[in-house]
Amino acid sequence: MPLLMVEVGVKYTIIRVCGSGNERRHLENLGFIAGEVIDIISKFNSYVLVNVRGSRVGLGRELAKKIIVC
């Protein structure tokens, strides 16, 4: 499912990152790479705050949609 639909406080694994080339590159630079485990810290109004590779990253709606986790 996309990152938008996750529950707070659960660990997820990234299955893939989609979107256009630029978006993907941007997300990969932030550390969103397939296989990575991420922590959902909080979620507010389709704004998601996650812990990825030890750093906190906030993602807006458009970007969060492009990350597919399970």
Partner: peptide
């Protein structure tokens, strides 16, 4: 549809 919350 893509702009919706999800495409599930």
């Amino acid at each position: 549809l893509d702009c919706n919350e999800s495409t599930a």
